[in-house]
Write a protein that binds this DNA or RNA. Sequence first.
DNA 1: GTCTATAGACGGATAGAC
DNA 2: GTCTATCCGTCTATAGAC
Lengths: 211, 211
Amino acid sequence: MVNRRVDEIAAETFPARGGTRERIQSVALDLFAEQGYERTSLREIAERLGVTKAALYYHFKSKEDIIASLVSDYFGQIDDLIAWARQQPRTRETRAEVLDRYFQIVAEGSDVFRMLQQNQASIGSLAHAKQRSELFRERMDALVDLLCRPGGSLAEQVRAASALVSVSFGCMFYGDKAADREELRDAVLGVALELADAGDRADSRTSGSTR
Amino acid sequence: MVNRRVDEIAAETFPARGGTRERIQSVALDLFAEQGYERTSLREIAERLGVTKAALYYHFKSKEDIIASLVSDYFGQIDDLIAWARQQPRTRETRAEVLDRYFQIVAEGSDVFRMLQQNQASIGSLAHAKQRSELFRERMDALVDLLCRPGGSLAEQVRAASALVSVSFGCMFYGDKAADREELRDAVLGVALELADAGDRADSRTSGSTR
DNA sequence: GTCTATAGACGGATAGAC
DNA sequence: GTCTATCCGTCTATAGAC
């Protein structure tokens, strides 16, 4: 709902001019993704921006606040997707649309996703975080649920989860190898849809085919 | 090749008695996985073991050394797998065997894998590490290469990578939901094999089927 | 092999001037 | 909104006794 900001920032090579708050987020995103949240000091962020540590505290009340703002922007988009999907019919078309929108979110905010990925430990221990890495898992479960038949078998759930991680990690690993986003989209969604569709028909290969 | 140790340890609920070095690794593994490498202090590890910080320095020359020992044990197994696979014929059977062995490694050392996953940032910045998270990516690329035809299209590579992450994350997410390892194996390898096999036949759906 | 004690460094955060 | 200066805590690592 609130969250176009971070993506737009991430898209630019350098934040140019504009709100200092946004420039802080942009620089922090880069550094957190490169070296990790814990290894990045406020001094470092301030230096790269050409300001001092104290200046950061005018815009964010703590270091945690900076990463929290990044995280909530990103998860907000996922939550919106889940909310939307929940009031759609459970058809093949819906599933395809869910995967497509998921791809858009991940591809667009792939810097954020990479940062999240690299700093799972830190994010899981954020002050207000529910517990461990439940933030991530909760959403994963919700999405898997939307891609599965209710009460699906373990194999079906694994298949749905695979469809999702195919999209996420496809973007992360091959985002730079693809010529443009269309090529990436075709490759990634091709795989994901195969998985989601196969999960729809009952399990044809859950047993006996593995060796 | 050195590395049965960590897995055996990880398999036990509590390290019981035995070499102090191994007990340190075991406790460190737990804490690193729970709270992250950076947020875990040597004091904490020592306390849980009932010894003092200084004692740790008798067994490891630095904090980094502790996590490095965990990482190299794990990556060593992956490297062995890659080396083995490289001198096998490139058949469907080999691919199936690669995925199966990969599953064994991940499932058996799933605690280690989870720890690695949670601390990517820290591991990528280890002193002797080549660069960033290249440790991880290098192995991923090597395995993808083994599952693909040489010079495969982007879609084929994404498919192979998906097969691998399906196994890894299938284990991580559903390792505890499965009744036993056989059930997990069937579910996870079922999906992975579908992907690997589909990549073998030319791309039947890389275009036009995505919406 | 394990302890006590401490050095030495650095990070997050605040106070208060401008 | 940004700066200087500083406080306070914690951490890694080492020295040296037992």
